[in-house]
Amino acid sequence: MTQTTPAHLEYVLRLGDAALIHGQRLSEWCGHAPVLEEDLALANMALDFVGQARMLLSHAGVLEGKGRDEDTLAFLRHEGQYRNPTLCEMPNTDFAHTMIKGFLLGSFNLLMWSRLCGSSDEALAAIAAKSLKEARYHVEHTGDWVIRLGDGTEESHRRAQAALDMLWPYTNELFAANPTDDAAAAAGVGPAWSDLAEDWEKAVLAVLKHATLTVPARTPFQSYGKFGRHSEHLGHLLAVMQHLPRSFPGATW
């Protein structure tokens, strides 16, 4: 186990918060998906992400060494203390939007977990090896849907393209260089996220092409969720997610 540095903790929090917030958004579909099979699929993927978040946030609590556990970190932090990329917190609209978002994030996770299997942080490497197996199924499922919707009917293509146009600018943030990543990479904790950009784009573009979707041009737009500056949507998400432990402090069942 490597010495814990602020960058190390920050790096793990970004991963944990990304899994938690994406998992929460997926869970919002429960009972609302277009067909029963997708209701099950979305809820099952949400469980995987929340499970990964539990392991990552527990580990972050250990790294921090202030006695905070997974629940304290998930339920008792404020908006500005969350480190998930903004893309994760984008509100659900239609099914195409969720599949495109899940595919963009899932493809990123697949590369990330694969690299993190070799982390100098043994606990993180163990979480990565486990999550990698799950991520393959997430990418398979969402990728299939991206192709089916994009190369589907006029209406499904229109919706998939609109979702891609809306979400694409937020992927800039995933690969933005920053000192936390530099320090984590130097310590062998994990790759700088920007290192994954090329492989991610290659994997994603191949599927988008199959899906007959047009990849939007890159713009200078930047979002800053992983630096703690979020869109207006995260606060609303947290209000729902944290409602119970905030209303009944210390409640257990």
Binding site: E37, E38, L40, A41, N44, M45, L47, D48, E134, Y137, E140, H141, D144
Partner: peptide
């Protein structure tokens, strides 16, 4: 195959 995910995460339908 009807669904990649079945009644539990470990199974497909």
């Amino acid at each position: 195959r009807l669904s990649e995910f079945g009644s539990t995460a470990c199974k497909s339908l």
